[in-house]
Write a protein that binds this DNA or RNA. Sequence first.
DNA 1: CTCGAAAACCTGTATGACAGGTTGTTATTG
DNA 2: CAATAACAACCTGTCATACAGGTTTTCGAG
Lengths: 239, 239
Amino acid sequence: MQEQTDPPGEPSPGLVSTAIQAITQHIRSEGLAPGDPLPSEAAMTRQLNVSRTVVREAFRSLSAMRLIDMSAGRRATVAKLDTGAMSMVIEHGITTQQISVQQVYDVRRTIEMRTVALAALRRTDQEAQAIAQSARLMHENFKSPEAVMEHDIAFHEAIAAASHNPVFSLIVTAFSGVTRRTWVIGWRTRSSDEDQLKMIKGHEDIADAILKGDPRLAAEHMAQHFDKSVKALLDAGIA
Amino acid sequence: MQEQTDPPGEPSPGLVSTAIQAITQHIRSEGLAPGDPLPSEAAMTRQLNVSRTVVREAFRSLSAMRLIDMSAGRRATVAKLDTGAMSMVIEHGITTQQISVQQVYDVRRTIEMRTVALAALRRTDQEAQAIAQSARLMHENFKSPEAVMEHDIAFHEAIAAASHNPVFSLIVTAFSGVTRRTWVIGWRTRSSDEDQLKMIKGHEDIADAILKGDPRLAAEHMAQHFDKSVKALLDAGIA
DNA sequence: CTCGAAAACCTGTATGACAGGTTGTTATTG
DNA sequence: CAATAACAACCTGTCATACAGGTTTTCGAG
Protein backbone atom coordinates (compact mmCIF):
# COMPACT_ATOMS: atom_id res chain seq x y z
CA MET A 1 0.00 0.00 0.00
CA GLN A 2 0.91 3.61 0.43
CA GLU A 3 1.46 4.13 -3.29
CA GLN A 4 -0.72 7.22 -3.17
CA THR A 5 1.40 10.31 -3.33
CA ASP A 6 1.14 12.16 -0.10
CA PRO A 7 1.96 15.75 -0.92
CA PRO A 8 5.20 16.72 0.80
CA GLY A 9 3.62 19.89 2.08
CA GLU A 10 3.00 19.03 5.74
CA PRO A 11 5.56 17.59 8.10
CA SER A 12 3.13 14.70 8.70
CA PRO A 13 1.65 14.81 12.22
CA GLY A 14 1.18 11.06 12.09
CA LEU A 15 -1.22 9.00 10.05
CA VAL A 16 -3.57 8.42 12.96
CA SER A 17 -4.14 12.12 13.55
CA THR A 18 -4.86 12.48 9.88
CA ALA A 19 -7.37 9.66 10.06
CA ILE A 20 -9.06 11.22 13.08
CA GLN A 21 -9.40 14.44 11.19
CA ALA A 22 -10.78 12.60 8.18
CA ILE A 23 -13.47 10.99 10.29
CA THR A 24 -14.56 14.16 12.06
CA GLN A 25 -14.46 15.91 8.72
CA HIS A 26 -16.74 13.23 7.34
CA ILE A 27 -19.21 13.80 10.14
CA ARG A 28 -19.17 17.50 9.44
CA SER A 29 -19.39 17.40 5.66
CA GLU A 30 -22.10 14.75 5.62
CA GLY A 31 -24.01 16.57 8.31
CA LEU A 32 -24.36 13.45 10.39
CA ALA A 33 -26.54 13.44 13.49
CA PRO A 34 -26.26 11.28 16.62
CA GLY A 35 -27.04 7.67 15.77
CA ASP A 36 -26.02 7.95 12.13
CA PRO A 37 -23.55 5.29 11.01
CA LEU A 38 -19.98 6.01 9.97
CA PRO A 39 -18.06 4.30 7.19
CA SER A 40 -16.69 0.88 8.05
CA GLU A 41 -13.06 0.50 8.96
CA ALA A 42 -12.43 -1.27 5.68
CA ALA A 43 -13.93 1.62 3.73
CA MET A 44 -11.83 4.13 5.61
CA THR A 45 -8.78 1.96 5.02
CA ARG A 46 -9.34 2.15 1.28
CA GLN A 47 -10.18 5.83 1.29
CA LEU A 48 -7.07 6.87 3.19
CA ASN A 49 -4.68 4.29 1.80
CA VAL A 50 -3.44 3.28 5.20
CA SER A 51 -3.56 0.03 7.12
CA ARG A 52 -6.52 -1.00 9.19
CA THR A 53 -4.34 -0.56 12.27
CA VAL A 54 -4.19 3.17 11.71
CA VAL A 55 -7.89 3.52 10.97
CA ARG A 56 -8.72 1.44 13.99
CA GLU A 57 -6.64 3.55 16.34
CA ALA A 58 -8.38 6.61 14.99
CA PHE A 59 -11.84 5.13 15.56
CA ARG A 60 -10.84 3.92 18.96
CA SER A 61 -9.56 7.37 19.93
CA LEU A 62 -12.82 9.01 18.97
CA SER A 63 -14.63 6.32 20.87
CA ALA A 64 -12.54 7.01 23.97
CA MET A 65 -13.60 10.65 23.74
CA ARG A 66 -17.17 9.44 23.35
CA LEU A 67 -17.60 11.25 20.08
CA ILE A 68 -18.60 7.98 18.45
CA ASP A 69 -20.08 4.74 19.74
CA MET A 70 -18.50 1.41 18.82
CA SER A 71 -19.74 -2.09 19.39
CA ALA A 72 -18.81 -5.46 17.96
CA GLY A 73 -20.27 -6.33 14.61
CA ARG A 74 -21.99 -2.99 14.14
CA ARG A 75 -20.55 0.00 12.40
CA ALA A 76 -19.57 2.92 14.56
CA THR A 77 -22.21 5.61 15.01
CA VAL A 78 -22.13 9.28 15.87
CA ALA A 79 -22.53 9.64 19.62
CA LYS A 80 -24.79 11.83 21.66
CA LEU A 81 -23.12 14.55 23.68
CA ASP A 82 -21.34 12.96 26.57
CA THR A 83 -19.16 14.04 29.42
CA GLY A 84 -16.64 11.23 29.09
CA ALA A 85 -13.67 13.07 27.71
CA MET A 86 -14.21 16.22 29.72
CA SER A 87 -14.29 14.45 33.04
CA MET A 88 -11.15 12.52 32.14
CA VAL A 89 -9.35 15.79 31.46
CA ILE A 90 -10.47 17.23 34.77
CA GLU A 91 -9.55 14.08 36.67
CA HIS A 92 -6.17 14.06 34.97
CA GLY A 93 -5.61 17.62 36.07
CA ILE A 94 -6.50 16.75 39.63
CA THR A 95 -4.44 13.56 39.93
CA THR A 96 -1.38 15.19 38.42
CA GLN A 97 -1.89 18.16 40.71
CA GLN A 98 -2.14 20.66 37.91
CA ILE A 99 -5.42 21.90 39.30
CA SER A 100 -6.72 21.96 42.85
CA VAL A 101 -10.04 20.90 44.25
CA GLN A 102 -10.64 24.44 45.39
CA GLN A 103 -10.16 25.74 41.86
CA VAL A 104 -12.75 23.29 40.64
CA TYR A 105 -15.16 24.49 43.29
CA ASP A 106 -14.63 28.08 42.25
CA VAL A 107 -15.57 27.18 38.70
CA ARG A 108 -18.52 25.15 39.88
CA ARG A 109 -19.74 28.05 41.96
CA THR A 110 -19.50 30.40 39.02
CA ILE A 111 -21.40 28.07 36.75
CA GLU A 112 -24.00 26.88 39.19
CA MET A 113 -24.90 30.39 40.25
CA ARG A 114 -26.03 30.73 36.68
CA THR A 115 -27.62 27.33 36.17
CA VAL A 116 -29.71 27.74 39.29
CA ALA A 117 -30.99 31.11 38.12
CA LEU A 118 -31.75 29.76 34.66
CA ALA A 119 -33.43 26.74 36.19
CA ALA A 120 -35.69 28.99 38.25
CA LEU A 121 -36.70 30.75 35.05
CA ARG A 122 -36.92 27.89 32.61
CA ARG A 123 -37.60 24.69 34.56
CA THR A 124 -40.59 22.61 33.60
CA ASP A 125 -42.80 21.38 36.41
CA GLN A 126 -41.36 17.94 35.95
CA GLU A 127 -37.81 19.23 36.30
CA ALA A 128 -38.74 21.17 39.42
CA GLN A 129 -40.14 17.94 40.82
CA ALA A 130 -36.97 16.02 40.00
CA ILE A 131 -34.85 18.63 41.75
CA ALA A 132 -37.07 18.67 44.82
CA GLN A 133 -37.09 14.91 44.79
CA SER A 134 -33.29 14.73 44.97
CA ALA A 135 -33.28 17.11 47.91
CA ARG A 136 -35.93 15.06 49.62
CA LEU A 137 -33.97 11.85 49.09
CA MET A 138 -30.93 13.49 50.65
CA HIS A 139 -33.01 14.22 53.68
CA GLU A 140 -34.59 10.79 53.92
CA ASN A 141 -31.31 8.91 53.58
CA PHE A 142 -29.26 11.28 55.65
CA LYS A 143 -27.88 8.45 57.74
CA SER A 144 -26.09 7.02 54.72
CA PRO A 145 -23.35 9.38 53.47
CA GLU A 146 -22.98 7.46 50.23
CA ALA A 147 -26.64 7.89 49.41
CA VAL A 148 -26.63 11.54 50.40
CA MET A 149 -23.70 12.16 48.11
CA GLU A 150 -25.27 10.50 45.09
CA HIS A 151 -28.50 12.43 45.55
CA ASP A 152 -26.48 15.60 46.05
CA ILE A 153 -24.72 15.05 42.73
CA ALA A 154 -28.01 14.21 41.04
CA PHE A 155 -29.46 17.39 42.53
CA HIS A 156 -26.84 19.59 40.90
CA GLU A 157 -27.03 17.75 37.60
CA ALA A 158 -30.81 18.10 37.60
CA ILE A 159 -30.48 21.84 38.07
CA ALA A 160 -28.03 22.02 35.20
CA ALA A 161 -30.44 20.04 33.03
CA ALA A 162 -33.24 22.44 33.96
CA SER A 163 -31.14 25.34 32.70
CA HIS A 164 -31.90 23.94 29.25
CA ASN A 165 -28.36 24.59 28.10
CA PRO A 166 -26.55 21.29 27.45
CA VAL A 167 -23.16 22.97 27.70
CA PHE A 168 -23.82 23.73 31.35
CA SER A 169 -24.91 20.15 31.90
CA LEU A 170 -21.77 18.95 30.22
CA ILE A 171 -19.50 20.94 32.48
CA VAL A 172 -21.36 20.30 35.71
CA THR A 173 -21.46 16.58 35.01
CA ALA A 174 -17.77 16.58 34.17
CA PHE A 175 -17.07 17.83 37.68
CA SER A 176 -19.12 15.12 39.34
CA GLY A 177 -16.17 12.77 39.39
CA VAL A 178 -14.13 15.22 41.42
CA THR A 179 -17.05 15.73 43.75
CA ARG A 180 -17.28 12.01 44.34
CA ARG A 181 -13.70 11.98 45.53
CA THR A 182 -13.90 14.90 47.91
CA TRP A 183 -17.50 14.98 49.06
CA VAL A 184 -17.00 12.74 52.05
CA ILE A 185 -14.28 14.99 53.39
CA GLY A 186 -16.64 17.92 53.54
CA TRP A 187 -19.35 15.78 55.07
CA ARG A 188 -17.08 14.67 57.88
CA THR A 189 -16.46 18.23 58.97
CA ARG A 190 -20.18 18.50 59.69
CA SER A 191 -19.95 16.24 62.66
CA SER A 192 -23.34 16.67 64.27
CA ASP A 193 -26.67 15.56 62.88
CA GLU A 194 -27.75 19.15 63.25
CA ASP A 195 -24.98 20.44 60.98
CA GLN A 196 -25.66 17.77 58.42
CA LEU A 197 -29.37 18.50 58.34
CA LYS A 198 -28.65 22.19 58.02
CA MET A 199 -26.58 21.45 54.94
CA ILE A 200 -29.40 19.40 53.49
CA LYS A 201 -31.83 22.18 54.34
CA GLY A 202 -29.74 24.41 52.09
CA HIS A 203 -30.57 22.14 49.20
CA GLU A 204 -34.25 22.20 50.01
CA ASP A 205 -34.17 26.00 50.04
CA ILE A 206 -32.64 25.98 46.58
CA ALA A 207 -35.26 23.55 45.33
CA ASP A 208 -38.02 25.72 46.78
CA ALA A 209 -36.71 28.85 45.12
CA ILE A 210 -36.58 27.04 41.79
CA LEU A 211 -40.11 25.78 42.29
CA LYS A 212 -41.25 29.30 43.09
CA GLY A 213 -39.46 30.56 40.00
CA ASP A 214 -37.37 33.08 41.90
CA PRO A 215 -33.92 33.25 40.28
CA ARG A 216 -32.48 35.80 42.70
CA LEU A 217 -33.43 33.81 45.76
CA ALA A 218 -32.23 30.59 44.14
CA ALA A 219 -28.86 32.11 43.33
CA GLU A 220 -28.56 33.46 46.84
CA HIS A 221 -29.12 30.06 48.39
CA MET A 222 -26.73 28.48 45.94
CA ALA A 223 -24.05 31.01 46.84
CA GLN A 224 -24.45 30.24 50.51
CA HIS A 225 -24.32 26.54 49.78
CA PHE A 226 -21.04 26.87 47.94
CA ASP A 227 -19.51 29.19 50.48
CA LYS A 228 -20.21 26.67 53.19
CA SER A 229 -18.96 23.77 51.11
CA VAL A 230 -15.70 25.48 50.31
CA LYS A 231 -15.29 26.46 53.93
CA ALA A 232 -15.83 22.85 54.93
CA LEU A 233 -13.15 21.70 52.53
CA LEU A 234 -10.74 24.38 53.71
CA ASP A 235 -11.37 23.41 57.31
CA ALA A 236 -10.48 19.87 56.35
CA GLY A 237 -7.20 21.11 54.91
CA ILE A 238 -7.85 20.58 51.20
CA ALA A 239 -5.40 22.58 49.13
CA MET B 1 -1.37 -15.54 25.45
CA GLN B 2 -4.46 -14.90 27.43
CA GLU B 3 -3.92 -17.92 29.65
CA GLN B 4 -4.40 -15.79 32.73
CA THR B 5 -7.77 -16.40 34.28
CA ASP B 6 -9.84 -13.29 34.04
CA PRO B 7 -12.28 -13.51 36.91
CA PRO B 8 -15.82 -13.84 35.53
CA GLY B 9 -17.00 -11.05 37.77
CA GLU B 10 -17.39 -8.18 35.30
CA PRO B 11 -19.27 -8.33 32.03
CA SER B 12 -16.06 -7.17 30.33
CA PRO B 13 -16.40 -3.64 28.94
CA GLY B 14 -13.70 -4.44 26.40
CA LEU B 15 -10.02 -5.02 26.91
CA VAL B 16 -9.04 -1.58 25.66
CA SER B 17 -11.16 0.22 28.25
CA THR B 18 -9.57 -1.93 30.88
CA ALA B 19 -6.12 -1.02 29.60
CA ILE B 20 -6.99 2.68 29.60
CA GLN B 21 -8.08 2.39 33.19
CA ALA B 22 -4.91 0.53 34.05
CA ILE B 23 -2.78 3.30 32.61
CA THR B 24 -4.61 6.15 34.31
CA GLN B 25 -4.58 4.10 37.46
CA HIS B 26 -0.83 3.76 37.10
CA ILE B 27 -0.47 7.52 36.80
CA ARG B 28 -2.56 7.98 39.90
CA SER B 29 -0.97 5.32 42.08
CA GLU B 30 2.58 6.25 41.13
CA GLY B 31 1.80 9.91 41.61
CA LEU B 32 3.25 10.80 38.24
CA ALA B 33 3.67 14.43 37.24
CA PRO B 34 3.68 15.97 33.76
CA GLY B 35 6.76 14.83 31.88
CA ASP B 36 7.19 11.61 33.81
CA PRO B 37 7.53 8.52 31.61
CA LEU B 38 4.97 5.73 31.47
CA PRO B 39 5.69 2.03 31.11
CA SER B 40 6.54 0.87 27.61
CA GLU B 41 3.91 -0.83 25.50
CA ALA B 42 5.75 -4.10 25.88
CA ALA B 43 5.70 -3.79 29.67
CA MET B 44 2.00 -3.05 29.68
CA THR B 45 1.40 -5.96 27.36
CA ARG B 46 3.04 -8.31 29.84
CA GLN B 47 1.34 -6.77 32.84
CA LEU B 48 -2.15 -7.00 31.42
CA ASN B 49 -1.74 -10.22 29.47
CA VAL B 50 -3.21 -8.76 26.32
CA SER B 51 -1.81 -8.19 22.87
CA ARG B 52 0.18 -5.15 21.95
CA THR B 53 -2.73 -4.14 19.72
CA VAL B 54 -4.93 -3.56 22.74
CA VAL B 55 -2.30 -1.72 24.72
CA ARG B 56 -1.51 0.44 21.75
CA GLU B 57 -5.11 1.45 21.22
CA ALA B 58 -5.29 2.39 24.87
CA PHE B 59 -2.16 4.55 24.69
CA ARG B 60 -3.34 6.10 21.48
CA SER B 61 -6.71 6.96 22.99
CA LEU B 62 -5.12 8.72 25.93
CA SER B 63 -2.85 10.51 23.51
CA ALA B 64 -5.85 11.69 21.50
CA MET B 65 -7.29 13.17 24.68
CA ARG B 66 -3.93 14.78 25.31
CA LEU B 67 -3.57 13.12 28.66
CA ILE B 68 -0.26 11.66 27.55
CA ASP B 69 2.33 12.63 24.96
CA MET B 70 3.64 10.09 22.49
CA SER B 71 6.45 10.27 20.01
CA ALA B 72 8.39 7.72 18.03
CA GLY B 73 11.21 5.96 19.81
CA ARG B 74 10.49 7.59 23.17
CA ARG B 75 8.24 6.24 25.84
CA ALA B 76 4.95 8.01 26.40
CA THR B 77 4.97 10.72 29.07
CA VAL B 78 2.31 12.31 31.24
CA ALA B 79 1.02 15.43 29.51
CA LYS B 80 0.47 18.92 30.76
CA LEU B 81 -3.10 20.11 31.01
CA ASP B 82 -4.39 20.71 27.53
CA THR B 83 -7.63 21.74 25.91
CA GLY B 84 -7.48 19.16 23.13
CA ALA B 85 -10.20 16.81 24.21
CA MET B 86 -12.51 19.46 25.55
CA SER B 87 -12.57 21.49 22.38
CA MET B 88 -13.21 18.37 20.34
CA VAL B 89 -16.25 17.62 22.48
CA ILE B 90 -17.58 21.13 22.05
CA GLU B 91 -16.95 21.11 18.31
CA HIS B 92 -18.65 17.76 18.05
CA GLY B 93 -21.66 19.16 19.85
CA ILE B 94 -21.81 22.08 17.48
CA THR B 95 -21.33 20.19 14.22
CA THR B 96 -23.94 17.61 15.17
CA GLN B 97 -26.26 20.40 16.21
CA GLN B 98 -26.63 19.16 19.73
CA ILE B 99 -25.64 22.56 21.06
CA SER B 100 -26.06 25.98 19.53
CA VAL B 101 -23.60 28.80 19.16
CA GLN B 102 -25.81 30.94 21.32
CA GLN B 103 -25.68 28.39 24.11
CA VAL B 104 -21.91 28.46 23.95
CA TYR B 105 -21.94 32.21 24.17
CA ASP B 106 -24.19 32.07 27.22
CA VAL B 107 -21.69 29.82 28.94
CA ARG B 108 -18.81 31.99 27.86
CA ARG B 109 -20.54 35.04 29.23
CA THR B 110 -21.11 33.36 32.54
CA ILE B 111 -17.52 32.26 32.83
CA GLU B 112 -15.85 35.35 31.50
CA MET B 113 -17.83 37.63 33.79
CA ARG B 114 -15.97 35.79 36.48
CA THR B 115 -12.54 35.51 34.87
CA VAL B 116 -12.47 39.22 34.14
CA ALA B 117 -13.29 40.05 37.75
CA LEU B 118 -10.67 37.63 39.02
CA ALA B 119 -8.16 39.00 36.54
CA ALA B 120 -8.77 42.52 37.83
CA LEU B 121 -8.00 41.26 41.33
CA ARG B 122 -5.18 38.86 40.73
CA ARG B 123 -3.41 39.86 37.52
CA THR B 124 0.31 40.49 37.60
CA ASP B 125 1.57 43.61 35.88
CA GLN B 126 2.91 41.47 33.10
CA GLU B 127 -0.47 39.85 32.56
CA ALA B 128 -2.19 43.22 32.52
CA GLN B 129 0.28 44.29 29.85
CA ALA B 130 -0.40 41.20 27.75
CA ILE B 131 -4.13 41.84 27.91
CA ALA B 132 -3.75 45.49 26.98
CA GLN B 133 -1.36 44.49 24.24
CA SER B 134 -3.93 42.19 22.64
CA ALA B 135 -6.51 44.97 22.68
CA ARG B 136 -4.01 47.34 21.14
CA LEU B 137 -3.17 44.87 18.38
CA MET B 138 -6.87 44.54 17.60
CA HIS B 139 -6.99 48.27 17.15
CA GLU B 140 -3.85 48.53 15.06
CA ASN B 141 -4.82 45.72 12.68
CA PHE B 142 -8.47 46.58 12.49
CA LYS B 143 -8.43 46.50 8.72
CA SER B 144 -7.66 42.78 8.76
CA PRO B 145 -10.56 40.80 10.20
CA GLU B 146 -8.46 37.67 10.52
CA ALA B 147 -5.88 39.46 12.63
CA VAL B 148 -8.52 41.15 14.76
CA MET B 149 -10.11 37.80 15.45
CA GLU B 150 -6.89 36.13 16.53
CA HIS B 151 -6.03 38.99 18.86
CA ASP B 152 -9.59 38.93 20.17
CA ILE B 153 -9.24 35.26 21.03
CA ALA B 154 -5.84 35.85 22.57
CA PHE B 155 -7.37 38.69 24.60
CA HIS B 156 -9.97 36.46 26.18
CA GLU B 157 -7.48 33.67 26.80
CA ALA B 158 -5.08 36.11 28.42
CA ILE B 159 -7.83 37.24 30.79
CA ALA B 160 -8.58 33.65 31.68
CA ALA B 161 -4.90 33.04 32.34
CA ALA B 162 -4.79 36.11 34.59
CA SER B 163 -7.60 34.63 36.69
CA HIS B 164 -4.94 32.21 37.91
CA ASN B 165 -7.37 29.33 37.76
CA PRO B 166 -6.34 26.84 35.06
CA VAL B 167 -9.82 25.35 34.92
CA PHE B 168 -11.16 28.64 33.63
CA SER B 169 -8.37 28.77 31.07
CA LEU B 170 -9.18 25.27 30.00
CA ILE B 171 -12.82 26.04 29.37
CA VAL B 172 -12.30 29.40 27.72
CA THR B 173 -9.65 27.97 25.41
CA ALA B 174 -11.90 25.04 24.55
CA PHE B 175 -14.43 27.52 23.21
CA SER B 176 -11.92 29.29 21.00
CA GLY B 177 -12.52 26.86 18.17
CA VAL B 178 -16.20 27.73 18.08
CA THR B 179 -15.35 31.40 18.18
CA ARG B 180 -13.09 30.98 15.17
CA ARG B 181 -16.02 29.61 13.19
CA THR B 182 -18.53 32.26 14.06
CA TRP B 183 -16.51 35.38 14.74
CA VAL B 184 -16.56 36.66 11.19
CA ILE B 185 -20.34 36.53 11.11
CA GLY B 186 -20.57 38.89 14.03
CA TRP B 187 -17.92 41.15 12.54
CA ARG B 188 -19.83 41.49 9.30
CA THR B 189 -22.87 42.89 11.05
CA ARG B 190 -20.74 45.82 12.18
CA SER B 191 -20.56 47.23 8.73
CA SER B 192 -19.05 50.65 9.36
CA ASP B 193 -15.55 51.42 10.55
CA GLU B 194 -17.18 53.29 13.37
CA ASP B 195 -19.09 50.25 14.60
CA GLN B 196 -16.01 48.10 14.34
CA LEU B 197 -13.87 50.54 16.27
CA LYS B 198 -16.57 50.83 18.92
CA MET B 199 -16.41 47.08 19.39
CA ILE B 200 -12.65 47.24 19.74
CA LYS B 201 -13.01 50.11 22.17
CA GLY B 202 -15.03 47.78 24.35
CA HIS B 203 -12.00 45.54 24.64
CA GLU B 204 -9.77 48.45 25.57
CA ASP B 205 -12.23 49.44 28.29
CA ILE B 206 -12.01 45.95 29.72
CA ALA B 207 -8.22 46.02 29.60
CA ASP B 208 -8.20 49.39 31.36
CA ALA B 209 -10.47 48.17 34.12
CA ILE B 210 -8.22 45.17 34.69
CA LEU B 211 -5.17 47.41 34.75
CA LYS B 212 -6.88 49.64 37.30
CA GLY B 213 -7.77 46.59 39.35
CA ASP B 214 -11.49 47.35 39.35
CA PRO B 215 -13.38 44.05 39.16
CA ARG B 216 -16.86 45.60 39.11
CA LEU B 217 -16.08 47.91 36.25
CA ALA B 218 -14.31 45.14 34.36
CA ALA B 219 -17.28 42.83 34.74
CA GLU B 220 -19.61 45.57 33.59
CA HIS B 221 -17.66 46.17 30.41
CA MET B 222 -17.43 42.45 29.79
CA ALA B 223 -21.18 42.11 30.16
CA GLN B 224 -21.76 44.85 27.64
CA HIS B 225 -19.28 43.26 25.29
CA PHE B 226 -21.08 39.94 25.38
CA ASP B 227 -24.51 41.45 25.08
CA LYS B 228 -23.46 43.24 21.94
CA SER B 229 -21.73 40.17 20.54
CA VAL B 230 -24.76 38.00 21.10
CA LYS B 231 -26.97 40.65 19.60
CA ALA B 232 -24.70 40.77 16.56
CA LEU B 233 -24.97 37.02 16.13
CA LEU B 234 -28.73 37.09 16.54
CA ASP B 235 -29.02 39.88 14.00
CA ALA B 236 -27.06 37.67 11.62
CA GLY B 237 -29.58 34.91 12.18
CA ILE B 238 -27.44 32.45 14.16
CA ALA B 239 -29.66 29.94 15.87
C1' DC C 1 -45.77 -13.88 1.53
C1' DT C 2 -43.38 -15.52 5.81
C1' DC C 3 -39.81 -17.26 8.13
C1' DG C 4 -35.50 -19.14 9.04
C1' DA C 5 -30.88 -20.40 7.75
C1' DA C 6 -26.82 -19.34 5.30
C1' DA C 7 -23.83 -15.84 3.43
C1' DA C 8 -21.61 -11.51 3.64
C1' DC C 9 -19.91 -8.06 6.35
C1' DC C 10 -18.25 -6.02 10.50
C1' DT C 11 -15.62 -5.34 14.71
C1' DG C 12 -12.35 -7.36 18.57
C1' DT C 13 -8.09 -9.34 19.38
C1' DA C 14 -3.67 -11.76 18.50
C1' DT C 15 0.75 -12.43 16.10
C1' DG C 16 4.67 -11.45 13.55
C1' DA C 17 7.49 -8.39 10.88
C1' DC C 18 10.16 -4.41 9.81
C1' DA C 19 11.42 0.64 9.44
C1' DG C 20 13.10 4.27 11.82
C1' DG C 21 13.91 7.10 16.12
C1' DT C 22 16.24 7.25 20.90
C1' DT C 23 19.30 5.98 24.41
C1' DG C 24 22.84 3.84 26.75
C1' DT C 25 27.21 1.20 26.17
C1' DT C 26 31.37 0.25 24.51
C1' DA C 27 35.39 0.53 21.93
C1' DT C 28 38.37 3.57 19.47
C1' DT C 29 41.21 7.42 19.15
C1' DG C 30 43.62 11.70 20.25
C1' DC D 1 42.35 9.53 30.63
C1' DA D 2 38.85 11.93 28.19
C1' DA D 3 36.22 12.78 24.17
C1' DT D 4 33.83 10.74 20.69
C1' DA D 5 32.13 7.69 17.36
C1' DA D 6 30.09 3.28 16.37
C1' DC D 7 27.03 0.00 18.01
C1' DA D 8 23.56 -2.57 20.48
C1' DA D 9 19.25 -2.58 22.84
C1' DC D 10 14.96 -0.78 23.15
C1' DC D 11 10.99 1.78 21.71
C1' DT D 12 7.25 3.42 18.85
C1' DG D 13 4.87 3.63 13.95
C1' DT D 14 2.89 1.06 10.47
C1' DC D 15 1.66 -2.95 7.78
C1' DA D 16 -0.19 -7.65 6.70
C1' DT D 17 -2.66 -11.57 8.05
C1' DA D 18 -5.63 -14.52 10.64
C1' DC D 19 -9.55 -15.86 13.10
C1' DA D 20 -13.43 -15.61 16.55
C1' DG D 21 -17.75 -13.92 17.24
C1' DG D 22 -21.55 -10.46 16.53
C1' DT D 23 -24.88 -8.21 12.96
C1' DT D 24 -27.19 -7.50 8.75
C1' DT D 25 -28.64 -9.06 4.32
C1' DT D 26 -30.09 -12.34 1.22
C1' DC D 27 -32.49 -15.88 -0.49
C1' DG D 28 -34.69 -20.15 -0.74
C1' DA D 29 -38.01 -23.42 1.44
C1' DG D 30 -42.48 -23.87 2.88
